[in-house]
Nucleic acid binder design. Structure first.
Lengths: 131, 131
DNA sequence: CATTTGTTATACAACTAATATAACAAATTT
DNA sequence: AAATTTGTTATATTAGTTGTATAACAAATG
């Protein structure tokens, strides 16, 4: 797992960690059952505070993506354990809406946006080789 | 334009205003050339501070969606004036990525996400009747 | 000329983000 | 069994964001 923090970004550090963890899992670089690095070691690697990483892990747990075993470590949940409840689907749709709306208003066609989505998909799904 | 603020939301008020304005334009409820309500009147309508609405308007201007004429008012830019530059396309893709990645990790299939995207599209594009 | 407009400035309270340090108790490793 | 590592909890500080409040200004509008 290579996480790269942009300290000048307007996206909070803990949010950057969360997103890149999710992308790593989507890419298959990390699999269900794998343990995440300890909050201290990852924080040291990234050059950030332990609490910042801890916040990210708890965000991942709240999303149902990992399980934190107190005093032990964090484990990536199995795909089955991740429910994809109707409520989660609604949330994804809610997240999607403003992005799509902005694209449309800026003049993107449905085809352009679908194309972008497929590009993102290809970029995330098990990269064939090379990367 | 009907804007509904959720004061308990974790999405900032100015961001809610921005998003709903964009959705209103996407839906065709507001057209290029139309003037937005004055920051004071909209603020009064929503029960928020003038500066909060002002911040939203400047965000819309930064996105290239409206033009603010100092001491006069804000006008929705024409679709042509809205460039859709390669940089804007990249930005949309960048916004799309974490949403799609999260969906995937939670177990959504490409089909499910595409379906959601089409649903959002249908919800935004000139709603046939009713509404 | 009076009103409305966005602009600018200042101030304040509440909250978030991030860091820093420390101590604790359970889990793991040696 | 002892040492180390782990997530947890607590406290404190700094900086920035969010939102409100009030006020004055000058240009645009009626």
């Amino acid at each position: 797992m290579f996480i790269q923090i942009e300290f000048q970004s307007d996206v909070p550090i803990y949010e950057q960690v969360t997103r890149q963890m999710i992308e790593g899992i989507a890419r298959g670089e990390m699999k269900p059952g794998d343990t995440l690095p300890s909050v201290r070691s990852l924080a040291a690697d990234l050059g950030v505070n332990m609490h910042t990483v801890n916040k990210s892990y708890h965000e991942l747990e709240a999303k149902g993506i990992i399980t934190i075993r107190p005093k032990s470590g964090a484990i990536i949940s199995s795909a089955e354990a991740r429910a994809l409840s109707p409520e989660q689907l609604r949330q994804i749709e809610k997240n999607l809406k403003p992005v799509v709306a902005e694209g449309m208003v800026l003049g993107a066609t449905a085809e352009q946006i679908e194309h972008m989505m497929k590009k993102v998909f290809a970029d995330l799904q098990i990269p064939a080789e090379g990367v």
